[in-house]
């Protein structure tokens, strides 16, 4: 292991430990919002594998988040599945969805890929509205009380307890960061970067670019789906908005703000943006205006985002 990689690993572990310790000092309200930020951060981290590292801009990643939300929530609501089973099932279904959508979408490139992912996600969103008897449509469904607490490996886990939810979120975030770290530091990281930088050249060096892109797409979609499943289970609510265009844009926004192509960027972006939106909504109802302005400003003056800029200027070892 190189010195840079060691530093990077220590930094990431330190951040995770810090997040774990924070629960003992911050208010209950902050614990709640930080839980939400972390879950959305996981979602954006999944998006970032595809966009930040592999250079593919999906405008429909909410379809995977939504797939996770519904694949976890519907079996619990309709069939009374246990929470862990539903969670694993949702991850599996997101994986399947990502493979199928990836095989289709990756036949297109650039502009067409962006429009196609946008349209497929829109079709998914409309499908949720269409089957509103089962899905609850845009009103959504609240998970039954019985699913708010369950036994797992001899432990009783109470999902109405804020600290429990927080720790589950930290755990899932840790899994996401560690898995991404191993992936990005290994040979796939090099390959993804190569594809982002120069796809034609990478193919002419003997790489199967399409398979590599599909792999990235699948990992990305599965992580996004896991975040969706976690959201449904932790907060006990599922609704069509989670699959809507706004969530796709948020993943993009968090990633751009925090720094595309850095492991902690999406989390940082999620924390900053959510805080900003909270503050703004106290002052104005038009926070979407700021969302738009921030998107434009980022592309114009700050395309690498916060951590991307820091990486470029000061910490080249950052992953």
């Amino acid at each position: 292991m190189g010195a840079g990689m060691m530093k990077s690993l220590i930094l990431h572990l330190a951040v995770l430990v810090l997040l774990f310790l924070l629960q003992f000092v911050i208010s209950d309200y902050a614990i709640l919002t930080l839980t939400r930020m972390m879950v959305l951060g996981i979602f954006a981290s999944g998006f970032n594998i595809l966009f930040g590292y592999t250079g593919l801009l999906s405008l429909g990643h909410a379809m995977f988040f939504g797939a996770g939300v519904y694949a976890a929530g519907l079996p619990i609501y309709h069939f009374g599945w246990s929470v862990p089973l539903a969670f694993v099932f949702a991850i599996f279904m997101s994986f399947v969805a990502a493979v199928i959508i990836g095989v289709i979408a990756l036949r297109t490139v650039r502009d067409s890929f962006m429009i196609l992912t946008l349209m497929l996600a829109q079709a998914g969103y409309l499908a949720i509205l269409y089957f509103n008897r089962e899905t609850g449509g845009s009103e959504g469904l609240t998970m039954p009380q019985a699913s708010r607490s369950f036994d797992f490996l001899g432990l009783t886990i109470d999902l109405t307890d804020a600290a429990t939810r927080y720790n589950i979120a930290v755990l899932l975030l840790a899994i996401t960061i560690v898995v991404s770290f191993i992936l990005i530091q290994g040979r796939y990281g090099r390959l993804f970067n190569a594809i982002r930088e120069n796809e034609a050249r990478t193919e002419m060096l003997g790489y199967n670019v399409l398979t590599a892109k599909l792999f990235s797409f699948t990992v990305s979609g599965t992580i996004a789906g896991m975040a969706g499943a976690a959201y449904a289970i932790l907060f006990g609510y599922i609704g069509a908005t989670f699959a809507g265009i706004q969530y796709s844009i948020e993943a993009l926004l968090f990633t751009l703000l925090g720094g595309a192509g850095t492991l902690l960027g999406p989390l940082l972006g999620s924390i900053l943006m959510t805080t900003l939106i909270d503050r703004l909504s106290e002052v104005t109802s038009a926070y979407f205006l700021f969302l738009g302005l921030i998107l434009i400003a980022l592309t114009l003056w700050f395309p690498k985002g916060l951590l991307g800029t820091i990486k470029e200027k000061w910490l080249p070892w950052l992953t």
Partner: peptide, 21 residues
């Protein structure tokens, strides 16, 4: 292409919300 599409998404929100206000 990527930057442009992101910027026009931003523009979408800006125009829409300005009109709302």
């Amino acid at each position: 292409p990527e930057a442009t599409i992101v910027a026009t998404i931003g523009l979408l929100y800006v125009i829409q919300q300005s009109v709302l206000m």
